[in-house]
């Protein structure tokens, strides 16, 4: 589904990623693991078009997306749930959900479908999104992105700082995304979540992928997490 070839990227003059190669097939969850600051978020940002690509290619279902803007990438099937600043905090929950509906010209009925799936968002529909709890914020961010029916989800540390019950809910959500046919590229530090959902694991260190595991291997992962 998504192919990343020889990608080098960064922010302005600062290069963060060196020669990244990876592929995320449909109905698979690929995990990226590494310490803070090794460039995991930059990788997702670059794929979504928020960081500056230096060289290398990005392909989504066989078509190059390297020249597309962030919004165009979102329209062509990249669904990114960033770790921070993932919603519009001053808008209400409902307005947050209306943004993709209006931007993509979807039917308004989609809104009730979302509310059917996320009852908690319906309860809080007129509340300002900035006042939601961490878990609810994540749900809202997921719901927004799901409205765009992406081919691949890029998800950055969705369980960071959440309560255990919310962690379970989010990993269930990731599994659902996979079952519904999407590919998932997940950045995660939580070992339980990794073990539960990952089909393949890339271990990153200082801007490069150093090791790829096709099976959960706690010893190796812990080494790269540096706990």
């Amino acid at each position: 589904m998504l192919k990343v070839q020889n990608l080098c990227a960064g922010y302005g003059p600062v290069q963060v990623l060196w020669d990244i190669n990876l592929a995320v097939p449909a109905r698979k969850v690929v995990c990226v693991v590494g310490r803070n600051g090794v460039g995991k978020s930059t990788l997702l940002n670059t794929i979504a078009g928020l960081a500056d690509r230096r060289s290398g290619a990005l392909c989504l279902s066989g078509e190059s997306i390297t020249q597309l803007s962030t919004a165009q990438r979102a329209r062509s099937g990249i669904g990114y749930v960033p770790q921070q600043r993932e919603i519009c905090p001053d808008l209400t929950v409902e307005e947050n959900l209306l943004v993709p509906i209006y931007a993509l010209g979807l039917e308004p009925a989609k809104l009730s479908a979302v509310y059917g799936r996320f009852a908690r968002l319906k309860e809080r529909r007129y509340q300002v999104a900035g006042s939601l709890s961490g878990g609810e914020r994540k749900l809202l961010a997921f719901a927004r992105v799901m409205l765009c029916s992406p081919k691949i989800f890029l998800i950055d540390e969705p369980t960071e700082g959440l309560m255990p019950s919310a962690v379970v809910e989010i990993s269930g959500l990731i599994a659902r995304c996979r079952e519904e046919g999407a590919a998932v590229l997940l950045v995660e530090q939580n070992l339980q979540v990794i073990e539960a959902v990952a089909d393949r694991i890339h271990l990153m260190n200082s801007g490069r992928i150093e090791l790829t595991l096709d099976k959960f291997d706690e010893a190796q992962i812990v080494k790269y997490l540096g706990v």
Binding site: S69, Q72, A74, P82, L91, P100, A103, L104, C148
Partner: peptide, 23 residues
């Protein structure tokens, strides 16, 4: 419609672009 999109961009440009709002 456009009002909501305008406020979304003003509030968080990246989050708006990530769901397909063309800045």
């Amino acid at each position: 419609r456009y009002g909501v999109l305008i406020r979304a961009i003003a509030n968080n440009r990246d989050a708006a672009a990530l769901v397909g709002v063309s800045t």
